[in-house]
Each structure stands twice: as structure tokens, then as C-alpha cells.
Amino acid sequence: MDPQEYQQIEQQNTPPTPYLKNCLKAFLVGGIICAIGQAITFLYMIFFDFTDKTAGNATVATMVFIAMILTGLGLYRKLGAFAGAGSAVPVTGFGNAVVSAAIEGKTEGWVLGVGGNMFKLAGSVILFGVGSAFFIALIKLILVSMGVVEW
């Protein structure tokens, strides 16, 4: 049996990934998470002296905190298994990546274990997030100085 023949057999017997179903689940759960985030923003604005601009930071902190609690209780893993990108893309997913890696590193001590492993998964998110932000800002700066768009 040659590899090509085998690939065919393998493909016939492997269930296809349900992309549409996964997308719908991600859309639903991601939407719910974002709706909760929006509700928290409104709560901060209505009950405290936060504006649209300033409530953002507080909301992110709160969402990451909630994600941290859920990760510690082992619930975020179950949510992630169901929702996929829906729970990974919002900031809660970032919190989950940081906290889960930190929990795992606990047995190797605080400095090398928790400290060294914490950004194992989230590190590349930070790197490429900051990197792409820099380049987008650079492009916009060039466009503005050329007079194509305004700030």
C-alpha cells in the first residue's frame, strides 16, 4: 500500500471538521462574552465615574479576572472545548492562556515555573499584537502625511 492510497483511505474514514457548526458556536459564545463585557462597561459608566474611554481598561481587567476564576475552577477549558475561537479570541481567552500556563508552571517554583511559563502561549500574542499595532500606526502616519486620510 503506497502513501497516496493510504491518504485516500484515511480521508474517507476521518470525519470532516464541522466548520459551519464550529463557526456558529464560536459566534454565539463569542457574542455572549462580548455582550457581558458591554454590560460591565455600562455598569461602570452608570454607577461609577467612568466614561466610554476610561471604562475600557476597567472592563478588560474585570473580564480577565472572571476568566482567571473560571480557569482556576476548570470551567474555561470546558467552555473552550465547546466554543473554540468564540472563547479564545476575546480578551478572556488571553487571560485563560496566561493563567492556565501559570497554574501549570506552579510545580517548578515561582520564578522559573510561574514566571517563566506564564507567557508561553500568550507571549506571541503580545509580540505580534504590539508589532502589528506599530506597523498599522506607521502606515496611517504615512497616509496622513501624504494627505490621503485624516487622523
Partner: peptide
């Protein structure tokens, strides 16, 4: 799991396989 895949509590979607 820790060695071969993600941290235990990381929420990732795994395929049916």
C-alpha cells in the same frame, strides 16, 4: 498533555480525531 499539547486548563477546541 502538558508536555505534548497545551496547558491543562487552556480552553482549546480539539478535533473529533
Amino acid at each position: 498533555e502538558r508536555q505534548f499539547r497545551y496547558p491543562l486548563d487552556y480552553g482549546a477546541q480539539k478535533p473529533a480525531t
